[in-house]
Simulated assay, not measured.
Amino acid sequence: MTDNAQPLIEFETPRLRLRQWRESDRAPFAAMAADPQVMEFLLPLPTRADSDALIERLEARIAEKGWGFWAVEHKATGEFIGFTGLNVPLATLPFSPCVEIGWRLARHAWGQGLATEAARGAMRVGFERLALEEIVAFTAVGNLRSAAVMERIGMREDVAGAFDHPLVPEGHALRAHRLFRIGRAQH
């Protein structure tokens, strides 16, 4: 930990452990990132080197702030199933500065309420431990699964906040995004 780094946060939910990244997460993360269904609303399908580089960036951001996109492990099996957490977006968005909540789970972990459970835990960290005033989430217009998780964790769509994501090329089907918000008082 560097002099200005924060203590590293880890936490558990009833079924999940949100923790720091491990070397053993790299292969299952790369496999998840190569799944076209998992990546349907994200750009582009990464190479293994891209996946490893993303893990390194996520680790560095956690080391700097103490929090970020944590690796998610299923407690019953010890299996890495994806990531969930809080992040300050690198892109300048119409509602910046902000802290977003996000998740990405392997397809075999879908449909079990795990994204919702992990996101609720991350939101609790954001409001109770980090004293955030607001958390946002955004997704491509067609990503109904992620939007449903956003609603299940208590977020409400800011229809006036719809935007074109600046990192998605002009004319691309994924450029139009929906914005969701929740304040500490609504948590």
Rank of each mutant, 00 (worst) to 15 (best):
H187K: 06
M123R: 15
L8H: 07
H108T: 13
C98A: 15
L174E: 12
P44R: 13
V159H: 13
R19K: 10
E117W: 11
R145H: 02
P44L: 05
F11W: 12
L105S: 12
A115I: 03
E133P: 04
Q112H: 15
G161A: 05
A109R: 05
R129A: 08
A137S: 14
L42W: 10
D35P: 00
A122G: 10
N143T: 01
H74N: 07
G82N: 00
R129H: 13
M1Q: 12
L174V: 10
H177Y: 02
I62G: 03
F163C: 03
L18F: 09
E12Q: 08
D25P: 11
G126H: 01
A140T: 04
R175Y: 09
F83H: 02
R48S: 03
A71M: 11
A63L: 09
R57E: 02
F127T: 05
N87S: 09
P89E: 09
V141L: 10
T2R: 14
A160W: 08
D35K: 03
I182Y: 00
R57V: 01
G183E: 11
P169M: 10
P89A: 05
R152W: 05
A115R: 00
R48V: 15
A118F: 12
A160H: 11
I135G: 01
L167F: 09
T13H: 05
A30K: 06
A115S: 12
E134T: 05
E133G: 14
A27S: 04
R61M: 07
R19I: 09
G161Q: 11
Q186V: 04
P36T: 03
A140Q: 06
A147C: 07
I182W: 00
W70D: 03
F138P: 11
G82V: 00
A31Y: 04
P36V: 01
I55A: 00
R61N: 09
H165M: 13
F11A: 03
E128P: 02
A137P: 00
F11T: 02
L42M: 15
G126N: 10
P169Y: 07
Q6Y: 04
E64L: 10
K65D: 09
H108P: 08
N87I: 07
